[in-house]
Simulated assay, not measured.
Amino acid sequence: MHIPCTKESSNILTYSILCSNIMKISFFNIMVTLMCLLLATLTTMAQGQGTRVGFYRTTCPRVESIVQSAVQSAVRADRTIAAGILRIHFHDCFVNGCDGSILLDGSSSEKTAPPNVPLRGYEAIDAAKSQLEAVCPGVVSCADIVALAARDAVVQVGGISWQVPLGRRDGLVSQASNTVNLPGFNDPINVQIRKFADKGLNTQDLVTLVGAHTIGTGGCVVFSYRLYNFNNTNQPDPDINPAFLPQLRALCPNGGDGSTRVGLDTGSVTSFDNSFYANLRNGRGVLESDAKLWSDGTTRPIVQRFLGVRGLLGLTFNVEFGRSMVKMGNIEVKTGSQGEIRRVCRSTN
């Protein structure tokens, strides 16, 4: 229908165009606002709760190179130290959050708890702290040094690097009794999943982070029961490959020295790779809790994805490990005015 071009109709047309333009501008502004909010949310998720990449860029710019150098020296002297440094970070974060409380000395500190007694690598943390105090005193927390050292230890034995958000502060409390909820060597899968979920980590994070057992060892005391009298049956654990059983029994004789150490990733104990998952598939998992990752239907598909099983979306171990480490590294962190920045990692100020 033709509309005559009168003054009134012209005003209506002008008003309509103006309203249309305003709506377009408003819609654009809304979309921009939503995009900014989304980017801010994603950045917060990536950086963590109160931590961020580059936290010491102006206050202690050499922090990463100093920690890296200390870890590099320690691993060059003893390649097996890498696993110890990595475990320190794990065991720290699962107790009172990632606050360096595992580093504190004391007759009843976290260090004295049975799961932590075998840990090694504290000297590398001390060395890094000493050097940092000389360059930028009172600035870098021990908790942040631990997080950086764990990353650098992985890199030193063949893993790939990832960015570590920083800004943690050090805790003031360290008690052995608080370690009861650490993941255990004989935990069933449902218990492992719950313990990780309690820390904000999902099942894929669980399978990924347990992959840290690609380096390091376990004492015979924590798995020899699987070799001779599993569940009081006088039989070995059926999850163990019968061809692998004689090798483990030779290393851990019945009634032998429980302190003897055995590689958790046989054949690749000092290289950070995904052969650990292949061993699980082949019935060569050393710890019961590890072996269950394959025998349990909840976690097996995730192990299969790391192995590139056809028909499943694959996962790249090194990449996923870095992502899960960032998530774990932000468990219950202390920031701002919480805690303190220790002058010495083994004692509070």
Rank of each mutant, 00 (worst) to 15 (best):
P4G: 07
L13D: 14
L13A: 12
L18T: 14
N21Q: 14
N21S: 13
I22M: 11
I22H: 10
F28S: 15
V32T: 09
V32H: 07
L34Q: 14
M35Y: 06
L39N: 07
A40H: 13
A40F: 15
L42Y: 10
L42K: 11
T44M: 12
Q49G: 11
G50R: 14
G54E: 08
F55Y: 15
T58N: 15
C60K: 12
P61S: 07
R62P: 03
V63R: 10
V67L: 03
A70V: 12
A70G: 14
A70L: 12
R79M: 11
R79V: 15
A82F: 06
G84W: 10
R87P: 01
F90L: 08
F90H: 15
S109Q: 11
A113N: 15
P118C: 07
R120G: 02
I125D: 06
L132E: 01
E133H: 03
V135C: 01
G138A: 05
G138S: 06
D144Y: 02
D144F: 06
L148G: 05
G158F: 11
G158S: 14
I160G: 12
G167L: 08
G171W: 05
S174W: 09
A176S: 15
N178R: 08
F185P: 04
P188R: 10
R194Q: 13
R194E: 06
G200H: 13
L206A: 07
T208N: 13
L209V: 03
V210R: 09
V210N: 04
I215P: 01
T217V: 10
T217E: 15
G218P: 00
F223H: 05
N234A: 00
N241K: 00
L245C: 01
L248C: 00
R249K: 11
C252P: 01
C252N: 06
G258W: 08
S259R: 12
T260S: 02
T270Y: 02
F272P: 01
Y277T: 01
N279T: 04
N279D: 12
V286S: 04
V286I: 10
L287F: 05
W294P: 05
G297F: 09
R300L: 03
G308Y: 11
G311C: 04
T316A: 04
T316M: 04
I331C: 01
I331N: 04
K334A: 03
T335H: 11
G336N: 07
E340F: 01
I341W: 07
R342K: 13
R342W: 12
S347W: 14
